[in-house]
Write a protein that binds this DNA or RNA. Structure first.
Lengths: 213, 213
DNA sequence: GCCTGAAATGAGAGTAGCTCTCAAAACATG
DNA sequence: CATGTTTTGAGAGCTACTCTCATTTCAGGC
């Protein structure tokens, strides 16, 4: 959801025999493409890295790269945690203030992403900060998550999910989290990402003047 | 700033003789390209409209189109009011609460844009809602404005402009305004844009639960 | 009016992201 | 192992965008 969350981990030993050879190959290809992309970007930068080079190193054809990822930016950014996040949001106790629920779930997503692979998280945030196309794509993907958040807020507050106020709050949240990510990258990842997210949520809840909770 | 603000009006009669032939031609070309773009988009939609077609109708070469606008999206979105907005923000009385200043200036920008050409404002917002590339470009351009707003907030509150909290607030504002624009377009421009912006700022100031001011 | 330097334009080649099609290869299933 | 389905590779094609260079168009002094 934050875009910093990691891609799903490779199939664990338990379910590997469950999957057919076809499925396993697909996962392998996906990861080969991503690994090749990360490596090339660190060597030469984002713009200088072409799809053809990625295909070469991943040992697939360029067509295959596009079959797996709709755009070059998606190779870097794609994660598939959104549905899990919504589920977790729904699982929060009904009497918990909804802002706390959002805080909890956001923090969990961040933790999961950073724990999965801190190096990838850093590379991603760096690219988000430095490459406009990547930043745009991330905002777009976060907006989708925003719609989900509208749903969750609506359920908790009894408002309509399409109501302007709800949508504005959700999108403000997205914007704030994006800025936190930028801040993290621009300051060389010195601060803890989780702490930055916490401060971000404070601003959203209490405004700029508001005391820290 | 909102992206819905209009492009600067054509040189008024007073300063036309002041400008050389060269400058006047440049302005004319700029407007010809934009007019051609708007017309073609209404006829065939955004994606179906190519740079070559735009160049044809504007009676310039494709190279010239790119000389005037860095990207296709910019032909639709570009406005140059940002510096004026910052100036106006600085001109607000120092004892006015800074949230009120932002509200005033935002409203003025919206008014100016809508009054300039309501049809263009509507087309723009429609494109922002419907074409991802345009929406992305608009967010990017609004982010630039966001940096300016950081500056203004910092001056008023005595905080540092680079402080996380300030940046988060500014970006949340941007996100909220974007969502208001989307809402406006998605509801067929029924509501007044200014009213939507007002409600948006309420959310930013008082949170979702907050009473209307 | 004319000449000279500077700026704007047009033509064209080139790059890269992305789409589409179609045939060949790899897997699944009986 | 034969059959049908998926996945892949090869390649053509489109378009946004960049760069270069020759040509045209304007500005200002003579």
């Amino acid at each position: 959801m934050t875009g910093m969350t990691a891609a799903p981990s490779p199939a664990s030993a338990a379910d590997r025999p469950r999957l057919g050879l076809r499925e396993r190959k697909k996962i392998k290809t996906r990861e080969a493409i991503r690994a090749a992309t990360y490596a090339l970007i660190e060597e030469q930068g984002y713009d200088a890295t072409t799809i053809d080079q990625i295909a070469d190193r991943a040992e697939v054809s360029p067509s295959t790269v596009f079959r797996y990822f709709p755009t070059k930016e998606d190779i870097v950014l794609t994660d598939e945690y959104d549905p899990l996040i919504l589920e977790e949001l729904r699982a929060r106790p009904a009497d918990e203030p909804w802002t706390d629920s959002i805080r909890y779930v956001t923090q969990r997503a961040v933790q999961a992403g950073v724990e999965e692979d801190i190096k990838v998280s850093r590379l991603r945030s760096r690219l988000v900060a430095e490459v406009p196309a990547v930043r745009s794509r991330m905002l777009e993907s976060m907006s989708v998550t925003g719609r989900m958040i509208c749903q969750a807020i609506a359920e908790r507050t009894g408002r309509a999910p399409g109501e302007l106020e709800v949508r504005v709050y959700a999108m403000a949240l997205i914007g704030g989290l994006m800025e936190a990510t930028l801040y993290w990258a621009e300051h060389g990842h010195q601060d803890g990402y989780a702490a930055l997210v916490d401060r971000t949520l404070d601003v959203l809840e209490h405004g700029l003047a508001g005391e820290k909770r």
